[in-house]
């Protein structure tokens, strides 16, 4: 029983890590650019195909696959921004609607290139089972947890300790004032797209080996990321981290009860219930400050 519970717990942490890596990008987009990007999960999907291509066709070693995928997404996102989002700065509705189009375009482009068939990303750690007490977990899953910790620490240091990070936070909090103080918003937006790309690329490269890679795999992830971001509070990085792990654990334990089909429904119902109690998320106070 204990073994079962702890395996669910570890599973929840792993899922939570993935949610977090994906949701951090979403929350940064909202916090800094005030946009809802419904194509974020599709960029994860493109990342997964990059990993698939790099691993299966280029025969790169796994560590190189991770780097290529992260770099690929970090380059892809600013390009997408240039093509799709840049002209719509300041619009509330525009980016959301365009991101729907982007999502459809990315899905069909990838389907055009790789077909709709599920692909597998090779990884040497997939069949490496690690025994923790009585539980055995694939090394691939376990890899997620320390990687995520490193990423969170790095992001924290970046946002708190570097000049650019300070600029990002300044634009998020006071867009107009920070502009008066010489921060170029477009530079900060670019940084956010690169950051979101790196994070989602890492998530794609590390999670893809455990998933079926298909052109529509991103849709569900987008929804999950938004559950996390809404519960954590739009634009709130710490909130997103906490909410991601909560959602990951809920997912894992609900599946453990044999209700895997209901995991999404339960998470979404939780979101709706949460919003009924706190209509503007956890960060209502922060919004008050902004106005």
């Amino acid at each position: 029983m204990l073994a079962f519970l702890s395996s669910l717990f570890i599973n929840g942490l792993v899922t939570g890590s993935m949610f977090m890596l994906v949701a951090l990008g979403v929350t940064l987009f909202y916090g800094v650019l005030r946009i809802i990007n419904l194509a974020h999960g599709d960029v994860f999907m493109v990342g997964a195909y990059m990993a698939f291509y790099a691993g299966t066709y280029l025969h790169l070693p796994y560590w190189a696959v991770v780097i290529v995928t992260m770099m690929g997404c970090a380059v892809l996102y600013p390009i997408l921004d240039l093509l799709v989002f840049r002209r719509l700065r300041g619009s509330e509705l525009g980016p959301l609607i365009t991101s729907v189009g982007l999502s459809m375009a990315l899905e069909s482009l990838v389907q055009g290139i790789f077909t709709a068939n599920a692909q597998a990303v090779p990884s040497p750690y997939l069949n490496n089972l690690v025994n923790i007490g009585t539980v055995s977990v694939p090394l691939q899953s376990l890899l997620m947890i320390p990687l995520t910790l490193v990423v969170v620490a790095a992001l924290y240091v970046f946002l708190r300790r570097t000049r650019t990070g300070l600029m990002v936070r300044a634009v998020a909090m006071e867009p107009r004032v920070s502009q008066l103080m010489g921060v170029r918003p477009e530079y900060v937006y670019g940084v956010v797209f690169v950051l979101a790309g790196l994070l989602v690329g890492l998530a794609a490269a590390t999670m893809a080996p455990e998933l079926y890679v298909t052109p529509t795999m991103g849709v569900e992830l987008t929804v999950d990321a938004y559950i996390v971001v809404v519960i954590g509070g739009f634009g709130n990085v710490e909130g997103a981290i906490v909410a991601a792990f909560i959602l990951g654990l809920i997912n894992s334990f609900v599946s453990g009860l044999g209700l895997a089909d209901w995991a999404t429904t339960i998470a979404l119902a939780l979101l709706v219930g949460f919003m009924m109690v706190r209509p503007s998320g956890l960060v209502a106070e922060r919004l008050g400050v902004r106005q």
Partner: peptide
């Protein structure tokens, strides 16, 4: 619930 939050909540309801 209004604005972006309403968009996401209704999205969630649709998926439910």
């Amino acid at each position: 619930i209004r604005g972006h939050y309403l968009a996401i909540v209704t999205l969630a309801i649709g998926v439910i």
